Simulated scan of single mutants.
Amino acid sequence: MVREAVFYARREEKKVKCLLCPHGCVISPGKNGICRVRKNMSGRLVSLNYGKVTALALDPVEKKPLYHFFPGRNILSLGSLGCNFSCGFCQNYHIAHGEPALYEIFPDELLSLALEEQSRDSVGVAFTYNEPLIWYEYIMDTAEKLKSHGLKTVLVTNGYINKEAFKKLLPLIDALNIDIKAFNEEFYRRHCRGDLKTVLDNVELAASCAHVEVTSLLIPRENDAREEIKGLAAFLARISPFIPLHFSRYYPAYKFTLPPTPEEILHQARDTAREYLHFVYLGNLPGEENDTVCLKCQNLLIRRRIYQVFPVGIRDGRCSFCGEELSYIVM
């Protein structure tokens, strides 16, 4: 099934200009945009990935990662194919840039699956694995149905979308984990074929109306400088010092062959970011403690052992030790 795209403009000679993301691809008849899933069919821009799924799983919500959004619960997670970035370190390159096997799940069927998974403690649906924003029409249609049934919608995204399109989508979204690849415009141009400013603007926009957490994959000598970490943390703190920041350990993948990030670099980054933010966590680092404590009394709220999560100090949305309202954790 193909679906006409929402954001595009017609040009001369049956060309079209895609208006979904800042690339603004001008696409000739029969050709695709950078993302590979938006095609000009006789002067009409269509989405090729509507209902097309490459992966479906019931995941812990912490795997997204979201640590302050229904801790200890599950979420039905699915992805499609394609991406509007070209990161050489992509960890899901086989679906972002390859030709994966596909099957179809249309919005009504996904809603039924999500409702069934409530019995397994699922809070809703996460669009993840590849870049969900290029799945725009499908997510719009599905998220409306999920919301009408009290289910949550989550995006795990690079945040690279035009503001008009993002504003239309956000009222349907409950939480996002936005990947800030680096606090460095040159990194975005060289490695991602994108720009940092768009992403930062969209982090701020999303945080004004949904729960937001941020992930940054730290790559040795590429985006791990202390000044860069300080810049990222300070930027987020200006929006809200309560935004959780996840530093993830890089491992060689796709076109990148650098050795894995040294553990001490991750620990240093966490220490630096904690000068600005209340909650900084480390990912892809087995055995690392990522507990959450009450900001008022410092008692343990959530114990995490990889994806085993125990909300031990929370009762009715408050700290069970001092009674402080935990407004920074969605439950």
Rank of each mutant, 00 (worst) to 15 (best):
S112F: 05
V37N: 04
G51Y: 06
V26F: 08
K17W: 03
L48N: 07
D108G: 02
G51T: 10
S42V: 04
L81Q: 03
S28G: 12
V46Y: 06
N84D: 11
Y50D: 13
H97N: 11
P71A: 12
P29D: 14
G43L: 07
G72P: 09
N40A: 10
P65S: 14
V26W: 10
R73C: 14
L45F: 11
M41N: 13
G98K: 00
H23V: 06
F69L: 04
V46G: 02
L102I: 04
I75T: 10
Y93V: 03
L19H: 09
K39D: 03
G72V: 06
S112V: 02
D59Q: 08
F106G: 07
A96N: 10
A55Y: 07
C90E: 11
S77G: 05
E99T: 01
D59L: 05
K14T: 06
F70I: 10
H97Q: 11
C87T: 07
K64A: 02
S77P: 08
Y50V: 09
S47Q: 12
A55L: 07
K17I: 15
V46L: 05
C25S: 02
I105A: 03
A114V: 11
E99V: 01
K63F: 08
K64Q: 13
V61W: 03
G43T: 13
I27K: 04
L78C: 03
P60E: 10
D59T: 04
P107I: 04
A96Q: 13
G88Q: 04
L113A: 09
E109L: 05
A57W: 05
E13Q: 13
L115P: 11
I75V: 15
E104K: 13
K15Q: 13
